[in-house]
Amino acid sequence: MKDIKKLLTELKDYLLITIGSLITAISINVFMVPYKIAPGGISGVATIIYYLTDAKIPVGIAMLVLNIPLFLMGIKLIGKRFIIKTLYGTILLSLLIDTTQPLTDYFVANYLTSAEDYLYSPDILLYSIFGGLLLGIGLGLVFRSGATTGGTDLAARIVNHIVPAFTMGETLLFIDTGIIVFAAFVFKSVQLGLYSIVTLYISSKIIDAILEGVNFAKALLIISDFPEKIASSIMKDLDRGVTALKGKGMFTGSDKEVLFCVVQRRQIPMVKKIVREIDKKAFIVLTDIREVLGEGFKTYE
C-alpha cells in the first residue's frame, strides 16, 4: 500500500513538472522571446544568444547547454534524486520551447502586436505582466514538485538549500536582476530592461504564492482578563479552535492566559466584535498566515 502511494506521489510530481514546463515554454515563446523580454534566468541568457546569432541557435538548445555546469554543482550539493527530476524538467522544457515555437510564432504573428513595433506599443506592458504571471505559475508548479527547470532556478534551489532564510522567489529576484541589466545593455534599451523587471517581479511573487500559499488566513493573539468567555464565544459562534498560552505581564508581574487562534479573513470582524463586547480593554495582535494545514483549513498532501 505504501509503495502504491509513493508511486502515485511520484507520478503526481512528474505530472506537475510536465504541466509547469509546458506553461513556462508558452510564456517564453509567446510573451518574451518575440519582444526581447529577458527576465533573468538561463532563458534570458538564451534569448540574448538567440538574437546575437540571428536565431541560428534556438533558445531551447542554448538553455540545455548552459545548464551543464549547474547540474554538476547540483549533483554535488543536493543529491541524485533531486537531480533526476530537475534533469527531466530541464530537458522537457528545452524540447517544449523549440517544438512549440512554430505554433507560438503563428499566434504572435496573428494575434499580438508585431515584434517590429513592440517598443512603440503600450501592449508590451500587458505582455510583460501576463508573461510574468504564466512564468510564475509554470515555475511554481515545477518547484512544488521538488524539481527545477535548471538555470538560475537550479542556482536558486542550491542557494535556498545552503541559506534557507531566503525564499526561492527572493533568490531568483537577486540572481536574475544582474541578467536583466546585461540584457538591457546588449539590446541597448532601458525600456526593455524595465519591462523585464516587471515580468521578473510578478513571476517571483507568483512562485512564492504557489510554494508557500496565499494569505488566506489570520492568526490572533488575544490578551484579556476574560479569556474563558472570549474563547468560549469564538469556539461556539465561529467554530474555530482556541489555544490558551501561559503568559506573564512583565510590567505588572501578573500571570495571564494568552489566547491563540487562526481564522479566515472574513471572520476577523466577528472576532473583533466578540472581544469588544466581552472586554473593551483586551489587547489583540493580528498577523497574516501564508499557509495553514490541519482541521478546518488545508489538508496535508
Score class of each variant (00 low, 15 high):
63 M>F: 02
60 G>L: 02
288 D>M: 04
98 D>S: 04
63 M>T: 02
10 E>M: 14
159 V>R: 02
132 G>Y: 04
23 I>C: 11
190 V>Q: 14
294 G>T: 07
140 G>K: 00
294 G>L: 06
265 R>V: 13
218 K>L: 04
189 S>M: 08
259 L>N: 00
229 K>Y: 11
240 R>Q: 11
132 G>R: 03
195 Y>H: 05
232 S>T: 04
204 S>V: 14
198 V>I: 12
143 F>S: 04
110 N>Q: 12
242 V>K: 00
33 V>N: 11
10 E>N: 15
284 I>K: 00
26 I>T: 13
218 K>P: 02
294 G>S: 07
142 V>D: 04
192 L>E: 09
201 Y>L: 15
64 L>N: 08
220 L>C: 02
153 D>R: 04
139 L>E: 10
277 E>P: 03
78 I>S: 00
23 I>Q: 09
40 G>I: 07
135 L>A: 14
99 T>Q: 14
165 A>D: 13
274 I>V: 03
230 I>S: 01
281 K>N: 12
164 P>G: 02
4 I>P: 07
213 G>N: 07
120 Y>F: 14
292 V>C: 06
138 G>M: 08
246 K>N: 15
238 L>V: 00
190 V>A: 15
32 M>P: 02
180 I>S: 06
163 V>K: 15
223 I>P: 03
84 I>G: 09
34 P>Q: 09
285 V>S: 04
161 H>I: 00
211 L>P: 10
280 K>G: 15
24 T>H: 13
89 G>M: 07
96 L>P: 06
185 F>L: 15
151 G>E: 06
191 Q>V: 13
22 L>N: 06
201 Y>T: 13
269 P>W: 01
102 P>K: 06
296 G>L: 03
276 R>C: 10
67 N>E: 03
299 T>S: 14
100 T>C: 08
41 G>T: 06
199 T>Q: 10
122 P>F: 08
109 A>W: 09
201 Y>E: 11
203 S>H: 12
53 T>L: 08
210 I>V: 12
25 A>R: 03
170 E>A: 14
46 A>H: 09
235 M>S: 01
11 L>N: 06
99 T>N: 13
121 S>I: 06
164 P>Q: 04
248 K>L: 12
17 I>L: 10
198 V>G: 02
122 P>T: 10
113 T>I: 14
244 A>N: 13
134 L>Y: 00
207 I>P: 00
26 I>K: 09
190 V>Y: 15
4 I>H: 12
56 K>I: 11
276 R>T: 13
102 P>G: 06
42 I>Y: 06
